[in-house]
């Protein structure tokens, strides 16, 4: 995403937030439609489960719109959105409920979540080289996602924000609350850890 695109999105966000605060319901729809996929993808990568990701993404938007009066436009709307999404996913992951059901369903659902319902097919464009390549790509994604899931949550968060969402350091720093040094060291450890996991896999 280029700087210009980012700037354009930020401007639209600001006007829509203002419109929503002044009572324009359509602004809500525009904000949701503009960010839902990124937030959903972030939640999915953070949690590794589609249902959890949908729940957390919805909850993120609900929280945002309920507390939008507190939004001071000091940072971009998307940064605020990311911040709430990361915290929501963290809370969900820490909840005993989540851990309990994850333990129960690990051997039954994980497989289906990752490759069963064909979300990868939707994602893979038509010009994909071959079914074999699709399969290889899907397997690669499953492998990578499980390696990400095995990381500690803070490392997982920074590596996703940095290398999946490709956010700049300063925005990641605002989202996570880490200063730049902490962020870089966490990122380094996350990458070494991930390398070990992938090599082991």
């Amino acid at each position: 995403m280029s700087q210009a695109e980012m700037g354009a999105i930020q401007r639209e966000d600001s006007s829509d937030v203002a419109a929503f605060i002044s009572g324009n319901r359509a602004a809500l729809d525009r904000l949701v439609l503009r960010h839902k996929d990124r937030i959903f993808n972030l939640c999915y990568r953070l949690l590794g489960d589609k249902d959890d990701a949908e729940e957390c993404a919805q909850e993120t938007f609900v929280k945002v719109f309920r507390s939008i009066g507190d939004f001071r436009l000091e940072s971009s709307f998307s940064t605020w959105l990311y911040t709430i999404a990361v915290n929501t996913c963290k809370n969900r992951r820490n909840s005993a409920d989540y851990r309990f059901w994850k333990r129960i369903l690990r051997f039954t659902h994980d497989h289906g979540d990752e490759e069963g319902e064909g979300p990868a097919e939707i994602e893979i464009p038509d010009n994909a080289p071959s079914p074999l390549a699709q399969l290889a790509q899907r397997e690669q994604e499953v492998m990578l996602q499980s390696a990400i899931n095995s990381l500690p949550y803070d490392q997982r968060t920074v590596i996703i924000l940095r290398h999946v969402e490709e956010l700049p350091y300063d925005e990641i720093s605002r989202i996570t609350g880490y200063n730049l040094g902490t962020l870089k060291s966490k990122l380094s450890r996350a990458r070494i850890q991930l390398q070990k996991k992938l090599r082991g896999a």
Binding site: D37, Q58, Q137, L144
Partner: peptide, 28 residues
């Protein structure tokens, strides 16, 4: 390390489910 960065960057982007907006609107 470079391969890993490329791998992460190439992860497919999942889209939100179709009824996402309706659900958010209803809950809000």
């Amino acid at each position: 390390l470079s391969e890993q960065s490329e791998l992460l960057r190439s992860l497919p982007r999942h889209e939100a489910p179709p009824a996402f907006l309706e659900n958010v609107r209803r809950r809000v």
